[in-house]
Design a binder for these strands. Structure first.
Length: 293
DNA sequence: GGTAGACCTGGACGC
DNA sequence: GCGTCCAGGTCTACC
C-alpha cells in the first residue's frame, strides 16, 4: 500500500527526524543516505504494519507493508500525520525566530516540528524511561520492552512494534523489574499500562484536547513517574511550548551560554527564556548553543 | 511549600 | 574480576 500525505509547508522530514533522540529509539529507524524513516506500528485493527516514509515536494510518501484495507489506510494517514506534526502551523515561531541570530539555524533548516510516536502512550512511556538514567539506559530499556512484549510484523517476526498497553498490563512488576530491567520504574510502567488499558486514563484524547496547557500539565503530573521535567517534555511533544523541560543538560548548557559556567537553578533557566512567551520551549530546544553538548 | 533521602542501573575508575 | 562511586529525575516523608 502506498499513501501520499500533504504537509503544511515549510516542512523538512530530515529536520523532524533529527529534532530529538526519538529516532534512535525503536521502533523508529532512519537511514540518512536514503532519507527513509522506518517505523513499526500496531494498528487499532490489530495488524502490525511497517512504514517507510520519504519526503516529497508537498509532504511525504508512505510505503506500507502489513496493512490492506481502507480502514487501515485511513488510520495510517492519521497516525503518520500526527507523528510528523503535519497539521502544525509553525509560522508564529518562524516570525519570532527571524529576529534572533541564535535561531537562524532553526529557520534555515525548517526546524520546529518534533518527532512523535504513533501513540501518546508510547511517548509517555518512553519519556518515563528517559528519567534518571543515561541515554544508553533509555535505549536498553526500550529495546528490552520491545523484544519481550512487542508486536511482531507478520512478514518478519524479528521486527516488532512498541508494546500495547494491554500487553504490558498483563505483565507483572516482578517481570518488568527482573526481565526488562526497568528497576524502580517497573511499578510506574505497569500502572501506566493498566490505567490506559482499562480506559481510566485516555492518553490518546490528548492529541485533540482543548484543555489549557496548565490543565494538561496537571493531568500529566498525576501520572506516577512523570515529574516536572517529563511533563514539560510531553507538553512539547503535544505541541505546547510554554514549559521548558529542565534536566541536568539544560542546567549545564544554560550555565555555559548565559552565566559563564556558574551553577544555575531551575528559576534562572526559566528567566532566560521567559521573554519568548508561548514559544519558549521551542526556543530552548532549537537555540544555537555556543557550546552544544 | 521546601527539602532530604531513597529508588535502580550501568559505566567509569581504582585496586 | 571485584568493589566503590557517580549520574540521572521522581516520589515520599518530614519539617
Amino acid at each position: 500500500m502506498d499513501i501520499e500525505i500533504a504537509i503544511k509547508q515549510p516542512f523538512s522530514l530530515t529536520s523532524v527526524v533529527n529534532s530529538h533522540g526519538w529516532v534512535q529509539l525503536r521502533p523508529f529507524s532512519w537511514v540518512s543516505d536514503t532519507g527513509i524513516l522506518r517505523y513499526i506500528d500496531k494498528l487499532p485493527t490489530g495488524s502490525t504494519a511497517e512504514y517507510e516514509i520519504s519526503a516529497t515536494e508537498t509532504g511525504v510518501h508512505v510505503s506500507v507493508l502489513g496493512a490492506e484495507n481502507a480502514q487501515e489506510r485511513s488510520s495510517i494517514e492519521e497516525r503518520v500525520s500526527w507523528m510528523l506534526a503535519a497539521e502544525q502551523d509553525m509560522s508564529g515561531f518562524y516570525k519570532l525566530a527571524a529576529g534572533e541570530p541564535k535561531l537562524n539555524r532553526a529557520v534555515t533548516n525548517v526546524q520546529g516540528r518534533i518527532l512523535r510516536s504513533a501513540t501518546v502512550f508510547e511517548d509517555v512511556l518512553k519519556t518515563m524511561l528517559t528519567t534518571n538514567t543515561a541515554w544508553s539506559g533509555t535505549i536498553r530499556m526500550v529495546n528490552t520492552l520491545i523484544d519481550l512484549y512487542g508486536n511482531p510484523l507478520q512478514e518478519d517476526a524479528a521486527v516488532c512494534a512498541f508494546p500495547t498497553p494491554t500487553r504490558l498490563a498483563n505483565s507483572s512488576e516482578a517481570e518488568l523489574r527482573e526481565r526488562a530491567r526497568l528497576g524502580y520504574r517497573a511499578p510506574y510502567v505497569l500502572e501506566l499500562a493498566r490505567t490506559v488499558d482499562s480506559g481510566e486514563l485516555e492518553l490518546e484524547a490528548y492529541k485533540q484536547t482543548t484543555l489549557s496547557t496548565q490543565e494538561l500539565r496537571t493531568q500529566l503530573l498525576a501520572i506516577k513517574g512523570i515529574g516536572a521535567y517529563a511533563a514539560a517534555n510531553l507538553l512539547m511533544l503535544l505541541g505546547r511550548y510554554d514549559y521548558i523541560p529542565i534536566d541536568s543538560w539544560a542546567l549545564k548548557t544554560v550555565s555555559a551560554e548565559w552565566f559563564n559556567g556558574e551553577t544555575v537553578n531551575k528559576d534562572q533557566v526559566e528567566q532566560v527564556f521567559e521573554r519568548w512567551g508561548d514559544w519558549r520551549g521551542l526556543v530552548y530546544w532549537f537555540w544555537d548553543y555556543s557550546n552544544d553538548g
